[in-house]
Design a binder for these strands. Structure first.
Lengths: 209, 209
DNA sequence: GTCTATATATGGATAGAC
DNA sequence: GTCTATCCATATATAGAC
């Protein structure tokens, strides 16, 4: 197998770009960011080429470097989350700890099922790129699991948070990246029923002997 | 951050290699395979360079191509599992279905905790490389989860198998790749107690409403 | 701000001497 | 079987004209 042959997602037949400032809304930066999110989510950090991002955004490659300095800079900017972790956790825990696991799964799937979310990109990139792994670890641990652990009240909060994170990451890998059936195409509520109790136990149940 | 600066795992001070057949055991092929497993596990498919593999093995780069034809060929050879899935599942299910979840976790951690196992390489590579993703999906689904689903006797065996797989992959990501604490350094038996019941429920419990 | 052209680096693969 | 030398493709980054 020829190692994922050079297949640009869409051949992008090099649309004739005219010179000078763009006539339209001209938010080059925004267009590049959107394209980058999608690319990073699909192919991970190393698999994403600046040329493809530029082509998707309909701008020249050089502009990417111009606006974001480097591929790293682009990645950082693209990963800036569009959801507020604090608000996210607050909404989940607002109604108490009962059914928290189910609510967490439901909310997460709702967030991830509409494509291109930065989180999928982070998980994908984390597998091969050290920078992405650090970002993911720090973000998940501090911004999400830390808050979650603080909100519940049980012994060994860090372990509980990590266990919860492991199941969440596993679902993301299985459903969105590796696409194991029937999990990949399962109805969201099926997964809520199946996985919710797991997270509930990790968060509030008996996890250590 | 300069995107994982060019840091070979060990600087490898280019040991003076003499010409002609190796005087020692001379299992060049085996040495290359071992090095490849370790590299693929550490850096994934795309992150692994033939030059590094060759350096680790103490042989010339050209020999890698000579023996395995291409990077793809090397990957396939390296991924040839050193554990027999059929035997693995048989041993797990031999004593019945009680405590199956715990036994599965315990056996898995025992397998993965001594480094460089091909499975970590597959998970890591699957995130960005399509070939690795296909290999992982097919292997896990057919060789492991399929047998496991057949061995237990419960409705919706495929969903159960996939759910089990998701938690397993999640632990691998969290413990070996992203290294989320305290899960990364947790005592194996702690994880057996924490995660075993989850798998037990996925395999034999009530997972759908 | 945007483009062209190019420097620079990297990594897989091959030809051919030994 | 092993090594040297090299080709070639790919990709990031930058210089400088417009």
């Amino acid at each position: 197998m020829s190692r994922t042959p050079p297949q640009p997602d869409a051949p992008v037949p090099s649309p004739p770009r005219r010179r000078g400032p763009r006539g339209d809304a001209a938010d080059t930066r925004g267009a590049v960011l959107a394209a980058a999110r999608s690319r990073f989510a699909e192919h991970g950090y190393d698999g994403t080429k600046l040329r493809d991002v530029a082509a998707d955004a309909g701008v020249d490659v050089a502009l990417v470097s111009y606006h974001f300095g480097s591929k790293d800079g682009l990645f950082s900017a693209a990963m800036a989350l569009n959801v507020n972790p604090a608000k996210f956790v607050e909404e989940l825990t607002r109604d108490g700890v009962d059914g928290l696991g189910e609510r967490l799964v439901r909310r997460l799937l709702g967030l991830l099922d509409d494509r291109g979310t930065p989180f999928v990109a982070m998980v994908r990139s984390a597998a091969t790129n050290e920078r992405a792994a650090v970002l993911l670890r720090e973000f998940v641990q501090r911004e999400v699991l830390g808050r979650l652990a603080a909100a519940i009240d049980a012994p060994e909060p860090e372990l509980r948070a990590a266990l919860t994170g492991s199941q969440v990451v596993g679902v993301i890998m299985a459903r969105y990246i590796v696409r194991v059936q029937p999990l990949a195409d399962a109805d969201p509520e099926t997964l809520v029923a199946a996985i919710g109790p797991t997270l509930q136990r990790y968060l509030t149940g008996a996890v250590v002997t």
